[in-house]
Design a binder for these strands. Structure first.
Length: 630
DNA sequence: TTTAGGG
DNA sequence: CCCTAAA
């Protein structure tokens, strides 16, 4: 009996990168009046797209990241485990540490090093980046970017010493325990003077907009709790702006930022970044002192709560504010608040359209629980979480709306009827991100607040069990999935906890450590809504590799077999997808490298594609000749 | 359901 | 990626 114990990992949080745009107003203007029959949906769509505005900024981010990475390498940063995890993540930590030294923020704000935070020594996390920029909805775009799942170990007092847990067998008492969280539900309130907090920063740029991200959780009595610690952390851990950022040396486009529009057009916008001086920075930090006022700045002493995995990273010169939230699920008591204030001195005087200005107040992100045997490897855990997350999110997201803490279910009501017609600040509006086909369960222990819980259940697809009997296939899948570890990702600050009462779970048997696909059960086929377009998921190089390999073996025209052979685990890849991908691969191989977009496919693979394609079409021609000849 | 192709 | 005729 080698440990058939099953351990449950509470995966109850996602990091949600927030990328407020400096150039765009965050205001949502929704006509109150119903114009057409579809208008009730209209409001929701607007909200989704606005949410997307916050979440989209991936390319810029990655470029900055590249910059940071270069700096790291040149400064011979000693990272302990470069190969297992991407360096970009690690560089984030390094940068954060650098900032702390630089700005003396720790003293000023009574910062504690990460290592003093319980639960930070071993983390499971999911980070996402916006890998493509052509999705219709920003949220989808973010989600459909590539995710990586990793586990981290903070090996010491320095933030830079972060090791990735390699593929070793999990032990029930070893690393796993570290994943458990011993704290109470997080009660924190990161609030702020929305306009003044980042005043120095925002006034540097052309935009007057500033954004404050608030994380709020309520205690059992529904009271908002405040935690200054969060504020401290978030306002101090900033990435130092790379001095050569403005020089544009590392920017591919000479200081311009490329932006790809939905239809693939490319445009350039002036980079309006401006380097922030140390003096400015100090002013900024000085401004962030806490007054202990009633704005939620009461000092909460629970410094050891594993809840404060919140890192706010700010690139001053880019005017980008990255805030990573760990959304501890904790039922529905946790919300993210994204409040953006627009300092618009000139409200349109003659605006006769009766619009509501809505402010995105909160996004609630679904939670997930993973159940995995102790004999599973870390790698399989990663893949399982990865799969589960993408399955949940890949199903599409809904935006739920909370009014006065209650969910607004009736989509057909107008905003006036619902009571959203007043200015956003008075109507206490909240927005939730929830899986599209989530099963809705009401947790036994939680019925208050009128908020329902959204969870998605997973079960094993029986067919995938056979995958382990076919090593070559499994290896192929593995190859395709290994890419997740290579994907550049956001700096990962996150937490994982055990939460036995979580509503979502993913069961994963230990079969040769391979990732096992999980598929969601659609309990309620509420298909009455319009079918949403699937999120875009660009093929990774390793997926292409797997595809090419399979087609070399099976030929074109047997896409179902190709799917079974090489993508049986990838639930989101249908045989039609594979066929389509092959089509685009052939096309890609024929066009010049300059015309190609997206992640570059190695020429070697493209050559193989052409070879196979040429061979197949030749065969086809022969067949045709035979037929016509006879 | 799966293939094959156009959109 | 979607849609769908045709097999």
């Amino acid at each position: 009996m080698v440990s058939q114990t099953r351990l449950e990992y509470g995966f109850i949080g996602y990091q949600v990168p927030v990328f407020p745009r400096a150039s765009r107003s965050a205001r949502v203007r929704v006509p109150i009046r119903k114009k057409s029959g579809n208008n009730e949906k209209h409001a929701f769509e607007i909200l989704v797209s606005v949410a997307g505005d916050f979440l989209q900024e991936g390319e810029t981010f990655n470029r900055v990241l590249k910059e940071q990475e270069d700096e790291i390498q040149s400064s011979k940063c000693n990272l302990s485990d470069k190969e297992t995890y991407n360096e970009k993540t690690l560089s984030g930590y390094h940068q954060i540490r650098t900032v702390n030294k630089f700005s003396h923020a720790p003293d000023q704000f009574n910062l504690k090093p990460y290592s003093s935070l319980k639960g930070f020594d071993k983390l499971a996390n999911v980070s996402g980046r916006n890998a493509n920029h052509s999705s219709e909805l920003g949220i989808s775009s973010l989600i459909s970017g590539e995710f990586s799942v990793g586990q981290f170990e903070d090996a010491g007092a320095e933030l830079s010493i972060i090791q990735t847990v390699k593929s070793e067998t999990l032990q029930p008492t070893g690393s796993l325990d570290a994943l458990e969280m011993d704290c109470k539900p997080p009660h924190y309130f990161c609030s702020g003077s929305k306009t003044s907090l980042f005043k120095d920063w925002t006034t540097l740029g052309p935009s007057r907009r500033s954004d404050t991200i608030e994380t709020v959780s309520r205690d059992d009595n529904g009271n908002y709790m405040a935690d200054q610690r969060i504020k401290n952390l978030s306002s101090s851990r900033r990435w130092r702006v790379s001095p050569n950022l403005n020089g544009g040396a590392s920017f591919r486009n000479d200081g311009k930022r490329r932006k790809i529009f939905h239809d693939g057009r490319t445009s350039y916008s002036r980079q309006r970044s401006k380097r922030i001086s140390p003096l400015k920075r100090r002013d900024f930090f000085n401004q962030c002192r806490f007054s202990g006022s009633d704005r939620g700045f009461q000092l909460d002493d629970r410094f050891n709560s594993a809840a404060d995995k919140i890192v706010q990273v700010q690139f001053g010169c880019q005017l980008l504010l990255f805030v990573y939230f760990l959304l501890f699920g904790f039922r529905d008591r946790f919300t993210i608040r994204v409040a953006s204030s627009v300092a618009s001195p000139h409200p349109h005087p003659g605006s006769r359209d009766r619009n509501v200005k809505l402010r995105i107040k909160s996004f609630k992100v679904p939670e997930l629980l993973v159940e995995i045997p102790t004999t599973a490897t870390v790698g399989s855990l990663k893949r399982s979480v990865m799969e589960a997350v993408t399955t949940v999110l890949g199903d599409g997201l809904h935006v739920g709306i909370l009014l006065q803490g209650k969910k607004v279910r009736d989509d057909s009501k107008t905003l006036i009827q619902t009571g959203i017609s007043r200015d956003g600040k008075h109507c206490n509006l909240g927005f939730m991100l929830e899986p599209r086909h989530a099963q809705i369960k009401l947790p036994r222990c939680l019925g208050e607040q009128g908020i329902t819980s959204h969870a998605t259940s997973f079960t094993l697809d029986p067919r995938t069990s056979s995958i382990s009997l076919d090593p070559p296939v499994a290896g192929c899948i593995n190859g395709a999935q290994r890419d997740h570890h290579l994907v550049p990702s956001l700096p990962n600050i996150s937490a994982s906890t055990t939460l036995p009462n979580s509503q979502s779970r993913v069961s994963v048997p230990a079969i040769s450590g391979e990732a096992l696909a999980v598929v969601p059960i659609h309990h309620r086929a509420g298909r009455r809504e319009f079918v949403q377009r699937r999120i875009r998921r660009p093929f990774s190089v390793s997926e292409v590799e797997a595809l090419v390999q399979a087609v070399e073996k099976l030929g074109t025209g047997r896409w179902r077999d190709v799917k079974l052979r090489a993508f049986d685990n990838a639930k989101h890849r249908t045989y039609v997808d594979l066929k389509d991908k092959w089509k685009t691969l052939v096309h890609t191989a024929r066009i010049s490298p300059q015309q190609r977009r997206g992640e570059p496919v190695p020429q070697e693979l493209l050559d193989r594609v052409l070879a196979v394609h040429a061979y197949r079409s030749q065969q086809q021609a022969k067949q045709q000749q035979l037929k016509s000849g006879v």
